Simulated scan of single mutants.
Amino acid sequence: MRRDIELYDALYPIWLALNQLQAMVGDTYLVASSEAYAGSLPIYKYAKASGDVAGEASLTELKRQFVHRGRKKGTDKKAP
């Protein structure tokens, strides 16, 4: 039992640091995703509105990023 407590005490700072690192990486990922979305949205809207055939492959790639992922009808209801 004593060895378990020593191991727990030794691992706790490592566990804490890893959790903090994971939170920071997650936050950075979300910010990068948001900034990429915000930066490419005007380009996507312009390309879509202009019907530029030369950029069709790029438009298809951007379209994948902007697929509406809203709630489906009937999913707003609370479970009984």
Rank of each mutant, 00 (worst) to 15 (best):
S58N: 11
M1C: 09
S40E: 10
M24C: 06
T75K: 07
Q22L: 11
A49S: 13
P42M: 01
Q65P: 00
A10W: 05
G55H: 04
L62S: 05
V31W: 00
L30H: 12
L41R: 15
E61C: 06
V25G: 02
A49K: 10
T60L: 08
Q65A: 15
P13Q: 02
G55R: 07
R69Y: 08
M24F: 00
R2H: 11
I43K: 08
R3P: 00
Y29W: 07
S34V: 03
K73D: 10
L16G: 03
A17S: 15
K77C: 08
G39D: 10
G74P: 04
T28K: 09
S58K: 02
L11T: 09
E56Q: 12
K77I: 12
E61L: 11
A47I: 14
A10Y: 05
K73Y: 03
K63L: 00
R3T: 12
D27L: 07
A32C: 13
L59Y: 04
L41H: 13
D4F: 13
D52K: 10
H68K: 13
S40G: 04
G51Y: 03
P13W: 01
K72T: 09
K63A: 15
P13G: 00
G39M: 02
Q65Y: 07
A32R: 07
D9F: 02
K48V: 04
A54E: 12
Y37S: 09
I14Q: 10
R3M: 11
R64P: 00
D52Y: 04
E56L: 05
A17F: 09
H68C: 01
A17V: 11
W15V: 14
E61R: 13
D27C: 00
V53E: 14
R69N: 14
